[in-house]
Amino acid sequence: MNLRQDESRGESYIKSSGRCRCAAAAESVSKTAATAPVASYNLRCPGVKRLMREAAELATPENEFSAHPTETNLFEWHFTIRGPEGSEFEHGIYHGRIIFPTEYPMKPPSFILLTPNGRFQTEEKICLSISNYHPETWLPSWSIRTALVALRSFMLTPGNEGAIGSINFAPEERKKLAIKSRNWSCHECGPIIKLLPVQKPDNSNSAKEVGNGDATVEGKTSDAAPPTPQATDVVPKRQTSAEVAPTQNGHVKDSNPVTSPSTAAPNADNQDAISARNLETNNFALEQQQQHNEPIKNIIYDLGIGCFVVLILALCFRRLLSIFSQA
């Protein structure tokens, strides 16, 4: 079964189940022109409101990644990530798709890489702990920003044998693909190198960004990136590259970088950036938790007021009965 058949069957299932009214709207909008109005979606659907808010937050591309919905479907996004520093992916720029279910953010999206990279297969949904293959590990507080940060961390982990969409190319081959990826172009977004801001050259001068973001790599390719991290540095203690535990779904998933320690050894600037990103993610999760608890507080408050009123009425009724009985 190819990818298009899988997506069409998933859309027909969502439409027949009737769990959310925005499913039919998302399906109809995906077939309309690029000028489809926002009113075509059910704005009361939590998934629509969440995606529209995240689209506004990610309107300005960041240094490590960018993401935006397609012009015809709010539930399909295209993303671009920069290869993690200090690895064979360092000079690469990788493009892919995100397919969101209508139950998002209660259910996780699926991720598809389009650019050859040597770590994930292209044009195939990837089995990760943040993807639709493992909804049991997904948290609704996670956002697109959190998922893209995790996806960059997954690139540093060794490809687990048996994981869907996972491959293991040699480091030299990954370096060649990283250089070629800068000239890759999406049929919908255009040249992907223009989707990320121009990166300032580092002190090593291993790569320089000029003009519209094109890079020229100086020196030998083997000197452009440090050696690949060892498996013991990127695999959790309970799981090694040789011992991969099967999941409940019958296949293997990669370790979760969102909850595990960082797999690379970043410099001081990268540590500050990661700390700021983690702080932003925690603040967003706290905000989501507060918004979730606010209706519960209101309900408890209303119940307390109601019980107090009922108690007053009961005392008044009892007093009246005592008066009538004495009369």
Rank of each mutant, 00 (worst) to 15 (best):
R82W: 02
F284S: 05
C22E: 07
F89L: 13
T80K: 02
T72I: 13
D6R: 15
L58C: 13
I323S: 08
V29Y: 00
S206K: 12
P201T: 08
I299E: 10
R82A: 08
T72W: 05
R21W: 05
G159L: 01
S30R: 15
G18L: 03
F89K: 04
K194Q: 13
V309M: 12
N42W: 12
T216Y: 12
R50S: 12
N168C: 05
N73Q: 04
A55V: 05
R50G: 05
R182W: 11
T146R: 03
S185F: 02
N2G: 14
T216P: 01
P37Y: 10
Q271D: 06
S28H: 07
R145A: 11
N205E: 05
L320W: 06
I274N: 02
E11S: 02
E124M: 11
R319S: 13
N117Q: 06
C189E: 11
N63F: 14
P101H: 08
E287I: 02
N298W: 11
G250Y: 10
P201N: 11
I14M: 12
L303C: 14
A225I: 03
T70D: 10
E71S: 14
Y133D: 03
F308T: 14
E280R: 11
P61A: 00
F89R: 05
V252E: 09
G213F: 05
K237H: 12
A150V: 04
A273P: 01
F89Y: 15
F89V: 08
I144C: 05
G159D: 06
H95W: 10
I98C: 10
C127M: 07
W184F: 15
D272M: 12
N282P: 01
R145M: 08
R277H: 09
V234L: 05
F100C: 08
N63S: 15
N42H: 15
R9T: 00
E76A: 02
K180L: 15
A285R: 01
D272W: 03
E161A: 10
R97K: 15
A170I: 09
A178M: 04
P140Q: 10
E62N: 02
N212E: 07
P61E: 09
I81M: 09
K49L: 12
S28Y: 01
S262E: 12
V235G: 00
T122Q: 11
C127P: 04
H95I: 06
N63R: 15
N205L: 13
V48D: 02
I144Y: 01
V149T: 03
L196T: 05
S241K: 08
D269S: 12
E243K: 14
N298M: 14
Q230C: 03
V217E: 09
T247L: 08
F308K: 06
L195I: 02
P226C: 00
T157L: 11
P109Y: 03
L195W: 00
W142A: 01
